[in-house]
Structure formats: C-alpha cells, structure tokens
Design a protein around this nucleic acid. Structure first.
Lengths: 223, 223
DNA sequence: TGTCTATTGACCAGATCGGTCATTAGAGTT
DNA sequence: AACTCTAATGACCGATCTGGTCAATAGACA
C-alpha cells in the first residue's frame, strides 16, 4: 500500500522529510528562523529557551513555527543537523596540499567568517551544544556533534609540515597558543562587525589585521 | 531619638547593613549561597535566573533566602558588590615594582586561581554582568562594574617596562596574544581542576605548565 | 467566485515565577 | 522541664510564562 495508491498530487519539487514544510519556505525566511532559534538556544540552552521568544525574533506566528516543526525538540535537532552540515562543508573544503599550518588555519578562518555573515551564531551554537545538559537532547548531541568535532580537528592538522617549526619549541603548545589567539581575535572581530556597514570591507580589513597577528606568531614559531 | 534610647540588646559584633542577616551567617554557608547564586546568574542572566534553583543548589529554604535578602535584585546587587570587592582586592595587591609584564601577569593569575578555588565563577559572573541586558539591573552594573574594569586594566599595565620587547614588534598586539593565551589556558585549567583532589597539587602543576607557555611567548617577544 | 493551503493568535492546562508567612526546630536560659 | 526567642522551613499566593493546539482568516491561483 501507500505509494501505489496513485495520489500524484505532489509532483512538484517538494522535499520529503519531516522538515518538508520548513524546507519549502523561501530561503530568506528559513535563515531568519534559523538565526532566531539559534540565538535563543545559545542564550538560554534547550530547556529554558522559549518558543515564544523565537517566534517573536523570527517575526512569525507561534502556529507557523509548530507547523514547520512538530515540537521544540524537532526544531533543535534540525538546527543541530544543519549546523553540523555547515561544519562538514568546511571540513570537506580543507586543502590537504596546503601544509603550512598558518595558511591552512587562515583559509578555514576565512570560510568561517563568510558563514558567520549569514549565520552569526552557528559556531557558538555547536559549542554550546557540547555543553548542553538537558536530558531531552543530550543523547542526540553526543551522536551528532561530538563525532564532527573529532573528525574536523583531525583533518585540520592532517599532513601539516611540522618541520617548519623551530627546534626545541613545544609544537603542541605553540599550536594551542595559535588557536587561542585565533579565538580571541575572532571574538574581537564579532564585536566590531556590527559597526561596519559594508561587510566585504570589514572582511578585507579583518584579514589584513589577522595577518599581522599571524606574522608575530610565525616569526617566533618558525625557523 | 534612635541611638540614645538605650536599647542595648545588640551589643555583640553584629553588622548593620541591609545585608546584616546574611553576613551574620557562618562563612561556609555564605560561600555556599554566593556560589549557588552566582552559578545560576551566570547560567541564566538576571531575568531568567530562578530563586528556586538557587535555594536548591545552596541547600537552603526559599524562606531563608528571602530572609537574608529582601528580593532577587537585592541578592544580585550584593553579589555584584562582593565580586567587585574581590577584584579591587587583587588590584590593590598589584606590585608596581614588578615591571616585567610576564611576571606581573603571572602574579595576578595566581591570585585569581587562588580565589577561584573558593568562588569558581566570580570572574565569569562579572564578565557576564557587563553583558547583562535586564533593565532592572543594567544601571547598577554600569555604576559598579564598569569603573572597576577600567581601573584594573589601567593599573595592570602601569609602570611596565616595555623596553624589554623586541624592536619592530607591535607591543599592543603582543600583549593581546599574551592575554588570549592566558584566558585560553585558564579555561583549560578550569576544566581540569575538577579531576584533582589535592588542590594545592593542582596549583603547582598549573603554575609549572603556565611557565612553559609563558616561556614560549617570552622567547619570541623579548629581545 | 470557489478552492486550497499558509498563516495567524487566542487559548489550553500545567509549570514556574518572585515573594509571603504561619509554623516548626533548636539553641540558650532558668 | 518549661519557657523564650530566633533561625529555618515549605506550603502557598496570584501572576506570568510554558510548549503546543486549532478554529478562523488571509492570500495565492484557477
């Protein structure tokens, strides 16, 4: 039964998942909802996040939200899947032929920046998810998020040319410093991004400023 | 009237502020309440923080909490005052004769670590407060927290010997890197601190590990 | 005009909110 | 043991907010 019953009413390019209704929305509206929901989940965690708050920020009605997603949990799971796909997209694009860690990290950072312009808090969301404590979603996070983190950090440092580092330097610690510096610089950038109107202008200035931090570390870490 | 009326019932060492009842508690109990409240406020912000949750974590009854403090806001304000006093205590102890920035920062970091053993989230609390958006407490935060931050960062870099830095190095950026590294290292330490039983043992190992990060940066920043 | 779907927001029962207060527990005094 | 006095309790309050529902409406297309 089922398929054969000849109801061919849906022969347009509709998508058949539990998220069909949401995915058939206009892309802009989808993004608005994604960002509103992510913002709320980042700020409050799963349990305390309010669907009322989400619909307000997304400028849709309560009914619509629960038309697109059957429950708060389903919405959350969708966001997890969507965000991890973004990360996977970045990981796939990592160029293993680039063996210089500074350049490789710079490339990844640029891609992150690019994505953050459309989804300002995706990465915060995934980071918050790893520390989420709600029993209702903890299991699913462990399944979907943790593996991605492992996989991505693995590929990030794959085939890096460590011979460029100065002798006697603790390379592992040096890379930690590099990461903390990137993180700090990224945070600083996010605070400044709102003051810019022209985003690509910001992007250029951001890149140039990063290069000066990068140079400081490269001068001291490399031979 | 008032004092002269001869009611000398309170001639023991009681403290007369709006916080009298709380301050006459045993120190341990005070700390338990402070930590429980801070944890909740850090996690949820002022508006969403639940007094029910606080009393649960502090192992006291709802009635007691509102006996010690007349309202949630009064509790919050007390915590702000208490936390800023801690920062002020640290700032006062800064030794201006120590003009080496690595050593000075190391001293401050040790003091912070010491305090974090009793109040694990005080610094997070003050950081969160600067980003608090609740109208009910925003004004008071601006009054009490912001000036402390200014004052402390000022004194932190006062009379530092910048001539030790390599020529051609952007000192400002170098110090930013140093700060980000400290922050990242501190975060890493907080996650490890729970795995230790002996706290002073952790303190020693922590200090030694920091020195190796510090050395990496010193070697590259200094002449 | 009629058909059909997308969107709405009033509404639900249940949970939680900050805060109160009559009651109890327990230490100290006689 | 009886009395005093304070510290601590948790059931309880009205108000607000929760995730979720659904009859009613708006709007696109025929």
């Amino acid at each position: 039964m089922g398929d054969q019953c000849g109801q061919s009413r849906f022969n347009r390019k509709e998508i058949f998942t539990i998220y069909s209704k949401f995915l058939n929305l206009q892309t802009e509206k989808q993004q608005e909802i994604i960002n509103a929901a992510i913002m709320e989940f980042v700020q409050s965690g799963f349990d305390r996040a309010s669907t009322n708050e989400i619909v307000k920020r997304a400028n849709i009605s309560k009914g619509s939200l629960f038309n697109y997603f059957n429950s708060k949990k389903e919405l959350y799971v969708y966001l997890i899947e969507y965000s991890t796909q973004i990360i996977e997209g970045i990981v796939e694009q990592i160029d293993l032929n680039e063996t210089d860690i500074f350049k490789r990290i710079e490339n990844i950072g640029l891609k992150k920046l690019h994505i953050q312009q459309r989804f300002p808090q995706v990465f915060d969301f995934l980071l918050a998810a790893t520390e989420e404590e709600s029993v209702e979603v903890k299991e699913i996070i462990k399944q979907k998020v943790d593996p991605i983190y492992e996989k991505s950090t693995k590929k990030m440092y794959d085939q890096i040319d460590y011979s460029k580092f100065r002798e006697g330097l603790d390379v592992e610690k040096a890379i930690e410093i590099l990461n903390w510096t990137m993180f700090g610089f990224g945070e600083k950038g996010l605070k400044e991004i709102n003051t810019f109107e022209n985003i690509s202008e910001f992007g250029e200035q951001y890149l140039r400023e990063w290069e000066s931090y990068s140079k400081i570390l490269k001068d001291s870490f490399y031979k």
